[in-house]
Nucleic acid binder design. Structure first.
Lengths: 203, 203
DNA sequence: GATATAAGTGGAGACAATCTCCACTTTTGA
DNA sequence: TCAAAAGTGGAGATTGTCTCCACTTATATC
């Protein structure tokens, strides 16, 4: 997935170092220091030499991407779980609301997304795709159910989510993010073409 | 507005240099090279020494901000003009659609926004505020008219616009951006509370 | 448990971009 | 025309990034 072409398993000590780097990185993400730190200093903080740091993660972004990737996987799992246990529209609504919660708690993730956006990161694109697949599933299910329009793709929803993530430092972030979700959900429901002439209200 | 504390007017040659820098910057924005260039080289390209460049714009971001600011002013003017000449909802819709066009054409602006987002730029915040004021005007007018809900602020719309701007490099950008606008508009209309008594405010 | 070799380490120093400093030039206004 | 104030520009200091390789550690083999 990241960094190394070979597929031979890493030596034990290498694995330990790699893990130490990821753990420290995650810690600094949450505290928001990650992007302000000299990268060499980061190596010392994690208890490895600079050479080792650079071998495992050739750039700051590569490391950020690794952490980002784990977060996205968690998010996708959540989407799948919701989809399996709730009616389609409710699952979608819950996921979107939860997404805001998630961003609210994982402060660092938002900044990471914003940063990766400016670098044209391939992992970000891939992560987006994975997340998008999950969202597509939710949207498509709801569309099939007839509670949601079918003519606006999950891509648009993704874009709104990106906006929420990227604008994390705005003062009234939380309220505005909820507002965006409300608009998106209502916008989706609005255009629905139910099989029967009525419909079930959103949430 | 930017950079200098004093208020004495700039000397003639200084004004010329400053202008040259801005002109060149704008040019490189459009071509997309601005953020990939060595900053010192940029000075030579604009025909001034590095010292001069740094005195006028102490960082690359400061220069980006100056250009950004001009763009935002243009956008705000457009909003005001629309508001004066069209019915409220139509003005809002037109503005949002036009915004996408504008971003589509001014390729560089999108990247600038994305970059400034990651730096916590004060100018970006201020620009957002200005734009937001304009959008607030449009939304409020439409709300008063009764064609649009009143319980979701312009901040949410702004966030969606940020998302559109920041995600400028996504493959299907144009279509998705239009989708977002559709969702936002329909979401706004959806929750409208006409003078008649019914409806429930969505969260 | 000794040995060979492949894998990994870490930090000194090369490199590259940013930015400062100041001897010099240009403008201003008296 | 001249003095003071304002501005210039580029050589070189500074700072963060990254490479290189002499050394250490793990693994596989006997």
């Amino acid at each position: 997935m990241s960094t190394r072409g070979s597929d031979r398993p890493l030596r034990a000590d290498a694995q330990r170092n790699r893990q130490a780097l990821l753990v420290k990185a995650r810690e600094l993400f949450e505290s928001g220091e990650f992007f302000d730190l000299r990268f060499d200093d980061f190596a010392r903080l994690a208890g490895v030499g600079t050479g080792t740091l650079y071998r495992h993660f050739p750039t700051r972004e590569a490391l950020a991407e690794a952490v980002y990737h784990e977060e996205v996987v968690a998010l996708c799992d959540r989407a799948r779980r919701l989809r399996a246990t709730l009616p389609a529209l409710e699952a979608l609504a819950t996921f979107l609301r939860d997404f805001v919660d998630y961003m609210h708690e994982h402060h660092g993730l938002a900044r990471t997304v914003a940063t990766l956006m400016t670098t044209g990161s391939e992992t970000l694109a891939e992560g987006s795709r994975a997340l998008e697949e999950a969202v597509t599933g939710l949207v498509a299910a709801a569309a099939e159910e007839g509670t949601v329009r079918g003519d606006v793709g999950a891509g648009a929803v993704m874009m709104a989510l990106h906006g929420i993530g990227a604008a994390h430092d705005r003062p009234g972030w939380r309220a505005e993010a909820d507002g965006v979700i409300t608009l998106v959900l209502d916008g989706l429901v609005q255009g629905a073409q139910p099989s029967s002439p009525n419909d079930s209200p959103a949430r």
